[in-house]
Amino acid sequence: MTQAAPTRYRLDLAYDGRDFHGWATQDGFRSVQGTLEHWISTVLRLPEPVSLTVAGRTDAGVHARGQVAHVDLPADDLAEELQRRLGRVLPDDVVVHRVRVAPEGFDARFAAIWRRYVFRLADDSPDPLVRHTAVRVRGPLDVAAVDAGARSLVGLHDFGAFCKRREGATTIREMLECHAERSPAGLVEVTLRADAFCHSMVRSVVGALVAVGQGQRDAAWLASLLDRVDRAGDVTVLPPHGLVLEEVGYPDDDQLAARQLEARARRDERPLP
């Protein structure tokens, strides 16, 4: 008897990254992926462990409010049951808001067209209650200068100066949106939205913008970073706890399969403007 093909499920989730060693499973460390895979396999009493694919693999200490993952399961009627059972057993620092059958062609990672992060900075006598979700910097920051610098990074660029380069991987990314503003709570919020991000890219970009906002660096220095292909030693990588993955964007269902093919192509084959 032929075994039925598995059903793909989309999970929308959030987590406080403070006590996780990042998203990805690592032996001997607590991870978001490891926690979810354990409990999904446990509550469904599956004979084999499941494997989750995620839209954005967050680093240790980074939070997520709008993370997306997918998992393939052996039945097509498990969404409500899985969401209910996970709600009973998951620890308080991770929540699965919704489980649903994924449309054809969906892949949490490769079908995504953008990821939106917000980095929060406290630059003047911050509220101690935000110390786990905002990074304190010497201030006050010139928010207008930070915003102008952020907007100059929009477009298709090689962000190698801001990334930990990995063999065989490209650092070319398209920054779709980048700006800064002061929130009603008094924090400086830097929003970054791109087709994808390299390892430590957001924390490095915001570190460079902070240097501009503090008057230590100017716009010409920031622009020069886009001419470098190797990581810049004069760019500070900020601590992770100010960073939140807020949202992941996907195309319409009939474009999911095509988006997968596009995303799997090497970005270094695309010409820079």
Rank of each mutant, 00 (worst) to 15 (best):
Met1Ser: 15
Thr2Trp: 14
Gln3Gly: 12
Tyr9Ile: 02
Leu11Ser: 04
Leu13Phe: 12
Ala14Gly: 15
Asp16Glu: 09
Gly17Phe: 13
Arg18Pro: 15
Asp19Tyr: 07
Phe20Ala: 14
Trp23Glu: 07
Thr25Ile: 09
Gln26Val: 08
Gly28Trp: 06
Ser31Tyr: 10
Gln33Ile: 11
Leu36Lys: 00
Leu36Ile: 08
Ser41Pro: 08
Thr42Glu: 15
Arg45Lys: 14
Leu46Met: 11
Pro47Gly: 15
Glu48Ser: 10
Leu52Asp: 08
Thr53Cys: 10
Gly56Met: 02
Arg57Gly: 05
Gly61Gln: 02
Val62Phe: 00
His63Leu: 14
Ala64Cys: 07
Gln67Ala: 11
Pro74Ser: 08
Ala75Glu: 12
Asp76Cys: 11
Leu78Gln: 07
Leu78Val: 04
Glu81Ile: 11
Gln83Pro: 01
Gln83His: 12
Arg84Cys: 12
Arg85Met: 08
Arg85Gln: 12
Leu90Ala: 02
Asp92Ile: 01
Asp93Ala: 09
Val94Ile: 10
Arg98Val: 06
Val99Ser: 02
Glu104Phe: 03
Gly105Asn: 02
Asp107Glu: 03
Phe110Met: 08
Ala112Ile: 03
Ala112Tyr: 04
Ile113Thr: 15
Trp114Asp: 14
Trp114Tyr: 13
Trp114Ile: 02
Val118Glu: 15
Ala122Phe: 04
Asp124Ser: 13
Asp127Cys: 14
Val130Thr: 12
Thr133Met: 10
Val137Phe: 06
Val137Trp: 01
Gly139Ser: 00
Pro140Gln: 01
Leu141Lys: 04
Ala145Pro: 04
Val146Lys: 00
Ala148Glu: 07
Ala148Met: 05
Gly149Glu: 04
Arg151Ser: 00
Ser152Gln: 12
Leu156Lys: 10
His157Thr: 01
Asp158Gln: 07
Asp158Glu: 09
Phe159Pro: 01
Phe162Trp: 07
Cys163Tyr: 05
Lys164Tyr: 14
Glu167Asn: 07
Glu167Gln: 06
Gly168Glu: 11
Thr170Ala: 15
Thr170Val: 06
Thr170Arg: 11
Thr171Ser: 13
Met175Glu: 09
Glu177Met: 08
Cys178Phe: 01
Ala180Gly: 00
Pro184His: 06
Ala185Tyr: 04
Val188Cys: 12
Val190Thr: 05
Leu192Asp: 07
Asp195Tyr: 12
Asp195Pro: 08
Asp195Thr: 14
Phe197Leu: 11
Cys198Glu: 13
Val202His: 05
Ser204Lys: 09
Val205Gly: 07
Val206His: 04
Val206Met: 05
Gly207Ile: 11
Ala211Asp: 06
Val212Leu: 02
Gly213Tyr: 08
Gly213Trp: 00
Arg217Trp: 05
Ala219Pro: 06
Ala220Leu: 12
Ala223His: 04
Ala223Asn: 02
Ser224Pro: 02
Leu225Cys: 12
Asp227Leu: 11
Asp227Gln: 11
Asp230Gly: 04
Ala232Asp: 01
Ala232Val: 00
Gly233Glu: 13
Val235Glu: 00
Val237Met: 14
Leu238Cys: 05
Leu238Ile: 07
Pro239Gly: 05
Pro239Tyr: 10
Val244Trp: 12
Glu247His: 10
Glu247Leu: 12
Glu247Arg: 06
Val248Cys: 04
Gly249Trp: 01
Gly249Pro: 08
Asp252Met: 10
Asp253Gly: 05
Leu256Gly: 01
Leu256Lys: 00
Ala257Asn: 09
Ala257Phe: 10
Ala258Arg: 10
Arg259Lys: 06
Leu261Ser: 09
Glu262Ser: 09
Ala263Ile: 13
Arg264Pro: 13
Arg264Lys: 11
Arg267Leu: 01
